[in-house]
Design a protein around this nucleic acid. Sequence first.
DNA 1: TTGAAAGCGTTACCAG
DNA 2: CTGGTAACGCTTTCAA
Lengths: 333, 333
Amino acid sequence: MSQNNITLKELAKILDVSISTISKALNDSHEISEATKTKIKELAKLHNYQPNKLAINLKSGKTKTIAVLIPSIQNYFFAKVLLGIESVVAKSPYNIIIGITNESYEDEKENLQKLSNGIVDGFILSVAEETQIKQEFNHFKNTNKPIVMFDRVVKNMTCDKVMVNDFDSVYEATVDLIKNNRKNIAIATTINNLSVIKHRIEGYKKALSAHLNQVEFDLIVEEPLHLISDKLTNILKAKKIDAIISLDEFASLAVLKTVKQNNFSIPSEIALIGYMDEKVATYLTPEFSTIDQNGVQIGEIAAKTLIDRLENKALEPQEIIIKSTINKKATTN
Amino acid sequence: MSQNNITLKELAKILDVSISTISKALNDSHEISEATKTKIKELAKLHNYQPNKLAINLKSGKTKTIAVLIPSIQNYFFAKVLLGIESVVAKSPYNIIIGITNESYEDEKENLQKLSNGIVDGFILSVAEETQIKQEFNHFKNTNKPIVMFDRVVKNMTCDKVMVNDFDSVYEATVDLIKNNRKNIAIATTINNLSVIKHRIEGYKKALSAHLNQVEFDLIVEEPLHLISDKLTNILKAKKIDAIISLDEFASLAVLKTVKQNNFSIPSEIALIGYMDEKVATYLTPEFSTIDQNGVQIGEIAAKTLIDRLENKALEPQEIIIKSTINKKATTN
DNA sequence: TTGAAAGCGTTACCAG
DNA sequence: CTGGTAACGCTTTCAA
């Protein structure tokens, strides 16, 4: 562990020149002669001079730091988005600060406040579940930093948004099942209250009403993770079901397990498709058909959008939609 | 979006008092009369005054920010550690900056440099794979900030370390299999070059030599993820195997799938145990027996250790070992 | 009880 | 080409 970093002042003292000369030389100013430049640069290198970022930030009013607020880390989707954000930011002069809101409104608000006082230049975030339930969005407006929302966005806020075509994807997946002669299609989720989940369910309903003239929807299973398996078992016993669409990662795992436990053969008796990490899906038996949100891409676009805004404030607020990909594997036909 | 934050200077102007008076009043100094204090505080609240963190940081030389450098985010283990770190840090005045090193030495070095210039007070990190291969650790020594290493640590560096009892855990798991009459135990990993993996393999070897007098070890499968399944299939066809221990998350998934594909019954013919996220393990069929590294706890301890060091530099370097937990489920007996 | 001034480390303007 | 000075927003010592 070395000493604290050497400063311009100390370098100036050593060479008996002014601080401004040192500063200019190290910034390759044309005002300084080549001779002194090289002399100063050598000394700086010798002492391993590193400019104090804090001072630069204070001076410039910028920090080249982006805050990413995600509701949860126990979730491949957000991990992938983070990966996408990181890959773009790593190639830029920016850093990432991460905050986990634990789906809590208070945590989200606190993170926003804590980071708005000069620490970061802008935010990339996905709205916490509790915030969506409360419909309380003032904390977003009370920061003077630009925000890019992804996946879970606030409809009536003007800011950049990177969204997913939830409605269309599930509509398409449902229609595909129908075309393969599935008529009794259930849907399962461990998450409520999220607009993205609601859009997915709407896509499902629309497909059923448009293609099967179905008007009542009694095969929608919304239960927390620890209950969903039992609930599903009851339904599987009570009704004929030939396909299940699962709307989140853990619902997908639970559905697969439950259907196997009840000894239905997949996909001949029951077809399965749902939201899940591709890599995990590949290693399940049978390989799980997925709706892939393309999280990495979402992260990349979100990061690019925020950096663009930070560098050029004049842009119109963007609303970008990233299409999900349907990857049919062994649980559908 | 509001204006930029109001400053002490501006508040001072409004009330026609000095900047120092404002500063002291807002910091509840006893030097200021109650009357002016309340007046100033009200005005500050009215204007939603937020002290500029950057200025405070520059003044104090501290940032109350911790950097966490992880090799990968596509990995439940690191996600859990992050969760543990975050839960501790959220209750403190500190923030977290995250960097992902992508198992690359260069990325790791760059992150360390980028963040050492005043941006963070200290680091929590797990060494990148490439760094371990290169055995190049000077970038860790060249920062003047305290480091807490977890899981993948550098043996010959004096710094705080939070480690896992890799040798013992796999030794124990192996012995348990032996006691259940498994004599042909294979081991599978998709990762090489990591000391933690080497320790795990040593634990396996020691158990076999101590309890079965085995001296040759030809059932060690070290292959990248895309090859491991084929390699394992060959071995399953060529040799009698009655148990497999898998040393990382994706190896565990691959092993389970491959054994099923080759129509061995689990656990009667082949028992399985390995490193994997508990929650995922529960949703596999059959439920997977795991060695759980207790990542959340590792994160918590690492964060506490670093904060302790930042608040009190006098401490001796700590080496803390977090014991892994063996959770037997349906793939062992 | 209040205020002036120095200082944290840097950049940028203006003189010389 | 080089140097002095002010400034970013804050805290802190010392003086009044």
